[in-house]
């Protein structure tokens, strides 16, 4: 098998496996996996910037929230149907990413981290300030009858699972395709050595801007879907904590790998879920696990796989 075939087999195989699991998983894990796939999509978006372009953002919750609120507010106040609302959500995220990218990309390194953090904080506070429409931290429910997409009731477990899988699969293959195209190669060139990429004649700023917009759009798609699938929009999703989560998932799963974000999100979810069943101190377990992982598997799960078995892993 050529490398391309191996890559295809692995990723198509993952989607096929997830599809098959729809029919055999017990209810609880079935629901969890639907959630994990949406969160993994968020992490895939994050990974475009961190993993492939080397841009560490601490404010991605603003894109997730832009998608969620773009979708939810247009249903609540404009009476949109789910499909156009979803598009509004994604467009809000893309627009926000464009503005944030234009401003924040003037900075680099730690300053970039802080600028994205500050913009995210602004978005969070704005949601609170607009409490008349957003109900602030309490948030609001998107009622079941408002969540029927093309005749499919998204609150039905199986529909929800398949919708999440569709979103996840689209974003997974889109990014897989992206990094094998010239634009993706420029991203990697910037990650490896920005100065050299510039000397080679690439428009580094424009490429980075593309990266931010693609990343923001995918994150917004995840946010909008999350709201639609689980029926709730709230300001908590715009807090710093939700900017840190995708960073953790990506670093744990393996930066700069296509399946890493999924593995990281899955791992963190079950780490917290299982340890909270055993003890109240699950944050302690999560903390220790992070330290141990970063000490003994510095490349993340997929990174270790690539190092030890599958050297071709994209």
């Amino acid at each position: 098998m050529t490398e391309t075939q191996k890559i295809l087999v692995l990723h198509v195989g993952l989607i096929a496996l997830l599809f098959a699991l729809n029919f055999i998983l017990p209810a609880y894990h079935h629901g969890n996996l639907a959630r994990v796939m949406v969160l993994a999509t968020y992490a895939i978006g994050y990974n475009v910037m961190l993993g492939y372009t080397g841009l560490l953002s601490l404010g991605h919750a603003m894109f997730f929230a832009a998608g969620m609120y773009g979708m939810a507010l247009s249903i609540r106040h404009l009476g949109f149907a789910p499909a156009p609302a979803l598009l509004v959500g994604i467009a809000s995220g893309a627009g926000l990413a464009l503005v944030v990218g234009l401003l924040a990309l003037r900075t680099a390194g730690v300053a970039f981290m802080i600028v994205t953090l500050m913009f995210a904080q602004t978005v969070y506070l704005t949601i609170l300030l607009a409490g008349r429409w957003t109900r602030g931290d309490e948030g609001f429910v998107i009622q079941q009858h408002e969540r029927v997409l093309w005749g499919i009731d998204l609150s039905d477990p199986s529909s929800r699972y398949l919708a999440a899988l569709t979103l996840f699969a689209i974003c997974l293959f889109a990014t897989l395709n992206l990094i094998r195209r010239p634009l993706g190669r420029v991203f990697v060139a910037i990650r490896e050595n920005e100065e050299r990429a510039r000397l080679l004649g690439y428009n580094v700023f424009r490429a980075k801007l593309f990266s931010v917009v693609i990343s923001g759009t995918i994150s917004a798609a995840a946010g909008a879907s999350y709201g639609l699938l689980f029926g709730y929009a709230g300001a908590t999703f715009a807090t710093v904590q939700y900017s840190i989560f995708p960073l953790l998932w990506v670093l744990l799963g393996g930066t700069g790998t296509i399946i890493g974000p999924f593995l990281g999100a899955l791992f963190m979810f079950y780490l917290i879920d299982l340890s909270s069943g055993v003890t109240n101190a699950y944050m302690l377990i999560a903390g220790v696990a992070l330290v141990v992982l970063v000490m003994f598997a510095p490349q993340g799960i997929a990174g270790e796989l690539r190092r030890r078995i599958w050297s071709w892993l994209p």
Binding site: L284, G287, V294
Partner: peptide
């Protein structure tokens, strides 16, 4: 960064 986030969780929980 990851390790100090881990440390943060540990200190908070303890």
């Amino acid at each position: 960064i990851v390790a100090t986030i881990g440390l943060l969780y540990i200190l908070q929980q303890v």
